[in-house]
Amino acid sequence: MAVQKTSLDLTLKIWRQAGPDAAGRFETHEAKGIPDSASFLEMLDIVNERIITEGGDPVAFDHDCREGICGMCSLVINGMPHGPNRGVTTCQLHMRSFRSGDTIWIEPFRANAFPVIRDLAVDRRAFDRIVQAGGYVSVRTGSAPEANGLPVPKQDADAAFTAAACIGCGACVAACKNASAMLFVSAKVTHLNLLPQGKPEAQKRALSMVRAMDAEGFGNCTNQYECEAVCPKSISADYIRKLNRDYRNSSLADIAG
């Protein structure tokens, strides 16, 4: 098995920002001899290691599982949240996707609802607060019926699973010119509202999660589908249509009392 051992020389333009209220700027770093089988975050590790050894200030960025599932890593790479490849997170992006001599622009996920903490790390707790507004089934531990007591058609279960694959990273917000969180909200509403277990609270869920989203300062959806294009889990923008329908029905029901 021939394993290519090539390395890249890159110019990095990295966003540096000391805190939420500080002014930010791009800082240039030359990253030489980066192995092409390293991941993008391993490339940043190598850069940081050099900065530390030279007595400088390393770049702060969020990451954790480094296998594309926790949703902690972010980064806008050359203008694209999670970089140039479809259906992957930044931590799964590998340097073989770049060429030696490339200049790479690295920025945080930008949105009013995601304030910068430092450099490339942002605060995404707004997503947690949206889930707290209704992204759950109100079932108390211990009160559940026998699991097979309620059959769920396979196509519904599969569709709910596909929507539930969202990792809550916020790339959809970072890609949207309106910084809308509709893809995130619609995925959760679709997951739960499709299942019989989620039906009793379906209307209330759609209404209160959308209201929470608005209150957090996320923008409106204007059907550009940038969110779908950058989603590392390829969540479909069709869910937004479904959410709009659920929201309209819930609003009417709400007005009608």
Partner: peptide, 18 residues
Amino acid sequence: DQCVAQGVPFAREYGGLL
């Protein structure tokens, strides 16, 4: 039982059971 009640979308067979 608990997880199914919470809406955890486990894999299912064509008959709708787990």
